[in-house]
Computed example of a mutant assay.
Amino acid sequence: MGHRFLTSLVPQKNQRVAGRPILEALRGLTWLQWMHFISGYIAWTADAIDFFSVSLSVTRLQQQFNRKTQDITTAITLTLLLRTAGAIIFGCLSDRFGRKWPLIVNLILISAIELGSGFVQTFKQFLGVRSLFGIAMGGVWGIASSNALENLPVEVRGLASGVLQQAYAVGYLIAALINLYLVPHVSAGWRSLFWTASGISLFAAVLRALLPESSVFIRVKANRVKDQTPLSRSRIFMHETKEMLKRHWLLCVYAILLMSGLNFLAHGSQDLYPTYLQVSKGLSDHNATVATIIGNCGAIA
Rank of each mutant, 00 (worst) to 15 (best):
L250I: 13
I218P: 04
A204Q: 05
W195P: 02
K246C: 06
L250Y: 15
R247K: 11
I218T: 15
L210V: 06
N223M: 03
W195Y: 04
R224G: 05
R233H: 04
R208M: 09
M244E: 09
Y254V: 06
L207G: 03
P212A: 00
E240K: 13
F237Y: 14
K226M: 13
V206F: 13
V220H: 10
V206P: 08
S260A: 14
F237P: 02
F217E: 01
K246G: 09
A255W: 07
P230Q: 03
E213Q: 15
A204R: 08
L231M: 10
I256L: 15
W195I: 14
H239M: 05
Y254F: 15
C252G: 05
E240C: 04
L202S: 05
Y254W: 15
R233F: 03
T229Q: 03
W249H: 14
S198A: 15
A197Y: 02
L257S: 04
P230T: 01
I256V: 15
L207W: 00
A222F: 00
S260H: 10
T229M: 04
W249N: 12
V225W: 10
F203A: 14
L258G: 02
V225R: 14
L250W: 15
V253T: 11
I256F: 15
L193W: 07
F194C: 08
S260L: 12
E240S: 11
I256S: 13
G261H: 08
L258H: 07
K242S: 12
A209P: 05
I236S: 03
G261I: 11
S201G: 12
S260V: 06
M259C: 04
S215L: 06
L207A: 05
R224Y: 08
G199W: 01
G261R: 09
F217H: 03
L193A: 08
P212S: 02
A204N: 08
G261C: 10
T241W: 03
F217I: 01
A205H: 06
F217P: 01
L210T: 14
T241L: 13
R233W: 00
A255E: 06
Y254K: 03
H239S: 10
F237R: 06
E240V: 06
L202D: 02
P230Y: 04
E240F: 00
L250K: 15
G261P: 10
G261W: 07
V216Q: 11
G199K: 09
H239C: 04
F203R: 10
Q228T: 13
T196K: 04
A255Y: 07
P230C: 04
G199P: 09
K226R: 15
S234D: 03
A222L: 07
L257P: 00
T196Y: 11
F237A: 13
R235N: 07
K246Q: 12
L251R: 11
K226G: 12
G261M: 08
F203Q: 06
I200C: 10
S215R: 05
T229L: 01
R224Q: 14
L193N: 08
S192T: 12
M238I: 08
M238L: 13
H248W: 13
L257V: 14
K242H: 09
W195D: 07
R233K: 12
G199M: 06
H248T: 08
Y254S: 06
A205E: 09
V216E: 15
Q228H: 14
L231V: 12
K221F: 09
L251N: 11
L211G: 05
S234V: 09
A255S: 13
D227P: 03
S201L: 10
P212H: 03
